[in-house]
Design a binder for these strands. Sequence first.
DNA 1: TGACACTGCTTGTATTTTGCAAGTGGATGC
DNA 2: GCATCCACTTGCAAAATACAAGCAGTGTCA
Lengths: 138, 138
Amino acid sequence: MRSDCPLNYGIEIFGDKWSLLIIRDLMFFGKRYYNEFLQSTEGIATNMLADRLAMLEKEKIIRKEKDSQHKQKIIYSLTEKGIDLLPIILSIGLWSEKYATIELNPNRDMILSDARKSVPRRVEKMKKKLLKEHSPTA
Amino acid sequence: MRSDCPLNYGIEIFGDKWSLLIIRDLMFFGKRYYNEFLQSTEGIATNMLADRLAMLEKEKIIRKEKDSQHKQKIIYSLTEKGIDLLPIILSIGLWSEKYATIELNPNRDMILSDARKSVPRRVEKMKKKLLKEHSPTA
DNA sequence: TGACACTGCTTGTATTTTGCAAGTGGATGC
DNA sequence: GCATCCACTTGCAAAATACAAGCAGTGTCA
């Protein structure tokens, strides 16, 4: 680690171009499988994805389980530590919505609209829902 | 741009290992000069710093002015677009405070303590203060 | 039982980004 | 008028990323 600054700590863990996008896919789009992450429009390379998933698991931001139905499949889900990235993701979204100089996807607006007014209470509600969705061996 | 997702938009602009640290130095530590940014404990290289400052100015997150007293000096300050990164920075700090596995700098706690309880109102107050500090030709 | 396809990866290599050290040109100080 | 400060720039090595191909384990169907 380069310093003991809390901001730097977060940046060193998820401050790359891919980690938060993987979290987003888990959080808002119900993605759970390796192949699903690969198909996101940003186009992550397969070795990068493998690398980030391993890192996020090591940091206990996501967890990895075998799919009991299909033995070759692996299910990824968020831990509470991962779910608590929600306020960060929403605040980045709200900033972009305010300042983006390109046209943003209007569907994503619906996700942000929940956060737009009173952030903390809405975030609490969303967190509870996510905790249910991402409970182990769901 | 890789996609029209609001989260991705933010990541593509300030989602590297240095940009938010520069913003932090402007926001909380009153740094205004090139040399001051160089001296931060994370140790940014001078070419990286020059590159990021140029990018942040191009994105209108910071502004660049000549110091009227010392003509060789250049003053950097935040625009409102830059000041509005505050909720993002605070939410990263709060997450780190909750989950960091290393010992964090306790001085930074004081910055976060403002945000800890009721985020939006505190953020509004901090934003107003920053707008004054970073008004052009201050 | 064997051929084929799907799954989550790994491996190899080209390209890009970053990091480090040294240097540059225009003030400023004495 | 010479050294020093300031905001950079340049050159090169090292690391991270992107792209393409391959591979082992499982499932599917004949």
